[in-house]
């Protein structure tokens, strides 16, 4: 069952916080993971792995490399949860 955009955003913010220590409120829809949040590729991969588990979706590598902003990830998960 699909979760709301806000629920997914909260969940992503939690994962980012646990991975990097960044405050949850800094994880906003239009932020870029690499440019704005300064998250390196290894941490990003960890976040994707945890997100798959948390949201019950699969995010293949060929898709995850195109997920640049928080909004991209939220939208992808929402669609995958269908």
């Amino acid at each position: 069952m699909a979760q709301s955009e806000n629920e997914i955003l909260d969940g992503i913010a939690e994962l980012v916080n646990e991975e990097t220590g960044l405050p949850k409120e800094s994880v906003e829809m239009d932020k870029s993971f690499t440019d704005d949040l300064d998250i390196d590729s290894l941490s990003m991969t960890s976040i994707v792995v945890h997100a798959e588990e948390k949201f019950g979706v699969t995010i293949p590598d060929e898709d995850s490399k195109n997920l640049r902003t928080v909004r991209d990830v939220v939208a992808y998960i929402q669609q995958a949860q269908g």
Partner: peptide, 14 residues
């Protein structure tokens, strides 16, 4: 343990 229980995709990059 993660590899055996959940498969290679769940093995973290660090």
């Amino acid at each position: 343990d993660v590899l055996r229980e959940k498969g290679p995709r769940r093995v973290l990059p660090l």
